[in-house]
């Protein structure tokens, strides 16, 4: 326990002192504000353009925006959020392999599984905090401008999107224990994601895949029911556990530290 807390402290200190922490904090705040901002600005932009459209003979319908528009913007910005988080942390192990800083830690009697676990806890914590920040800011603005009650199953939708992020992070941690350079880590995570995306094109299989969780945005407009996602949720959670266990397994047998 003492080793884990010492290692987590070291990771947090690193994030603070290298500026990672403040950078992500500000960025996530900006992302949170952008969702309602986009929704709010849409009619304004259309207004401006409608003049030129009508000159060209096109008629523009009046658009109405509400909390749903803002939540849809949240879904669109979500991939950027998770990609930036993955990019920020893809070197969590590879930077240490390259400098050899882990050798000192391991020869001090640190159990290897504790290194993987501590790193996972820190990245999960960053994701949790960042996600709550973005979600909270979007929710707050939506409540101020419009009404969040017009969308249904908001809480379940939030959990689904959160879980999808956890799944990608666990996959990245697993890949970091397999590969030594951060470019191969990012490429392999991207490759696996693409593979799963392609498999998801096959009918009937898609709802068993982790990425199906992102379809839960349909729930907001009352399309489908929560129980449609039960397989994807269970499989994602299992897959996260398997990824972490596999990461511990690979890391314990790694000799190129």
């Amino acid at each position: 326990m003492k080793q884990i807390s010492a290692f987590i402290q070291k990771e947090l200190l690193e994030c603070m002192r290298t500026g990672k922490c403040i950078f992500m904090l500000i960025l996530f705040v900006i992302f949170g504000i952008m969702n309602p901002a986009f929704a709010k600005l849409t009619p304004w932009l259309i207004d401006i353009m409608s003049d030129s459209f009508s000159n060209m003979g096109l008629s523009v319908e009046k658009v109405t925006v509400d909390a749903l528009t803002s939540w849809m913007q949240f879904c669109k910005n979500y991939p950027f959020t998770i990609i930036i988080l993955l990019l920020m942390f893809c070197n969590t192990l590879s930077a240490e392999y390259q400098t050899g800083t882990l050798i000192n830690v391991i020869t001090k009697g640190m159990n290897r599984w504790k290194i993987v676990l501590s790193k996972s806890i820190v990245i999960f914590a960053f994701w949790t905090a960042g996600y709550l920040l973005i979600f909270g800011i979007t929710y707050g603005y939506n409540a101020y401008f419009w009404d969040n009650n017009i969308v249904s199953c908001l809480a379940f939708f939030a959990v689904c999107y959160y879980l999808a992020g956890i799944w990608l992070i666990s996959l990245m941690i697993f890949m970091s224990t397999v590969f030594n350079s951060n470019s191969s880590v990012i490429l392999s995570v991207g490759g696996i994601f693409l593979g799963i995306y392609l498999i998801g094109m096959l009918p009937k299989i898609d709802k068993y895949l982790p990425w199906y969780l992102l379809d839960s945005s349909k729930l907001l407009i009352n399309d489908g029911s929560i129980s449609d996602y039960r397989f994807a949720v269970v499989i994602t959670i299992l897959s996260v556990i398997i990824n972490i266990v596999a990461a511990v397994f690979c890391f314990s047998r790694k000799s190129t530290l």
């Binding site: 080793q3 070291k10 830690v105 009697g109």
Partner: peptide, 20 residues
């Protein structure tokens, strides 16, 4: 090679905690 963002005292304290 050590963690460049730490001072020597911080690094040694970290090692002490790891070594129990």
């Amino acid at each position: 090679e050590f963690y460049g963002f730490m001072t020597p005292k911080e690094y040694l304290t970290f090692c002490g905690k790891i070594a129990g």
